[in-house]
Each structure stands twice: as C-alpha cells, then as structure tokens.
Amino acid sequence: MKKILIHSEYIKLDQFLKLSDCVSTGGMAKALLQEGYVQVNGEKEDRRGRKLYPGDKVEVQDNGVFEVEGGGIKE
C-alpha cells in the first residue's frame, strides 16, 4: 500500500488520483470513475468531488492501493 501525503484537512478524489499518478488529467479521472475502477474504503465510488480524509484507503484497478496520510494543515 502506498501512502499519499496531504497538507490539508481533506483532498477531493479527482485531485487525489492525479497526485497519486493514477491519471494525468481531470478528464481521465472522470473516465476512470465512470468505468467503476475506483473504490474508497472498499466501496465503489464514482464522485470526483468525494472528500478523502487521512486514513481513507483508495483502490484503483491496475494501479494499486493507496492510503491518505495527513501531514498537518498549512497555515
């Protein structure tokens, strides 16, 4: 499982997919979600704006499993 560090309270799923190098554009994220290739905490997810918090686990078909890790909020 790969840990992805965020410096805010949460990150939106489409941004997370780009940060984790699963996709390179928002359009690719949308397509990946519509095809049903993404699960959040074991449940299929298709909402690009889904908020992810530290501890959430994201599984992306053919890319692996990732965990959101908090690094504190930048002020």
Rank of each mutant, 00 (worst) to 15 (best):
residue 1 M to Y: 14
residue 1 M to R: 14
residue 1 M to G: 13
residue 2 K to C: 05
residue 4 I to P: 00
residue 5 L to C: 03
residue 6 I to Q: 01
residue 6 I to E: 05
residue 6 I to N: 05
residue 7 H to Y: 11
residue 8 S to K: 12
residue 9 E to T: 12
residue 9 E to K: 11
residue 10 Y to S: 11
residue 12 K to W: 04
residue 13 L to K: 03
residue 13 L to S: 02
residue 14 D to K: 11
residue 14 D to G: 11
residue 15 Q to A: 10
residue 15 Q to T: 08
residue 15 Q to W: 06
residue 16 F to V: 00
residue 16 F to H: 00
residue 17 L to Y: 07
residue 17 L to R: 11
residue 18 K to V: 03
residue 19 L to Q: 09
residue 20 S to W: 01
residue 22 C to M: 10
residue 23 V to H: 04
residue 23 V to S: 01
residue 23 V to D: 02
residue 24 S to V: 09
residue 24 S to D: 07
residue 26 G to Q: 02
residue 26 G to H: 03
residue 27 G to M: 01
residue 27 G to S: 04
residue 28 M to K: 14
residue 28 M to H: 13
residue 30 K to M: 09
residue 31 A to Y: 05
residue 31 A to E: 10
residue 31 A to F: 06
residue 32 L to D: 07
residue 32 L to N: 08
residue 34 Q to T: 06
residue 35 E to M: 10
residue 36 G to L: 08
residue 36 G to H: 01
residue 36 G to Q: 06
residue 36 G to N: 06
residue 37 Y to P: 01
residue 38 V to C: 09
residue 38 V to Q: 09
residue 39 Q to H: 13
residue 40 V to R: 01
residue 40 V to S: 02
residue 41 N to D: 05
residue 41 N to S: 06
residue 42 G to L: 03
residue 42 G to C: 06
residue 43 E to I: 09
residue 43 E to Q: 11
residue 43 E to H: 09
residue 43 E to C: 02
residue 44 K to R: 10
residue 44 K to T: 14
residue 44 K to H: 05
residue 45 E to F: 08
residue 46 D to N: 13
residue 46 D to H: 02
residue 46 D to E: 14
residue 46 D to I: 00
residue 47 R to G: 01
residue 48 R to N: 13
residue 49 G to E: 13
residue 50 R to A: 05
residue 50 R to T: 07
residue 51 K to L: 14
residue 51 K to N: 06
residue 52 L to Q: 08
residue 52 L to W: 08
residue 52 L to S: 09
residue 52 L to F: 08
residue 52 L to H: 04
residue 54 P to L: 07
residue 54 P to E: 12
residue 55 G to E: 15
residue 56 D to L: 11
residue 58 V to P: 09
residue 59 E to T: 14
residue 59 E to N: 14
residue 60 V to R: 03
residue 61 Q to W: 13
residue 61 Q to P: 06
residue 61 Q to K: 15
residue 62 D to N: 11
residue 62 D to G: 12
residue 63 N to C: 07
residue 63 N to E: 12
residue 63 N to M: 01
residue 63 N to Q: 08
residue 64 G to E: 00
residue 65 V to D: 03
residue 65 V to F: 03
residue 65 V to T: 14
residue 66 F to A: 02
residue 66 F to T: 01
residue 66 F to G: 01
residue 66 F to H: 04
residue 67 E to P: 13
residue 67 E to V: 15
residue 68 V to C: 02
residue 68 V to N: 03
residue 68 V to K: 04
residue 69 E to T: 14
residue 69 E to P: 02
residue 71 G to W: 07
residue 71 G to T: 08
residue 71 G to K: 07
residue 72 G to P: 05
residue 74 K to E: 09
residue 75 E to T: 14
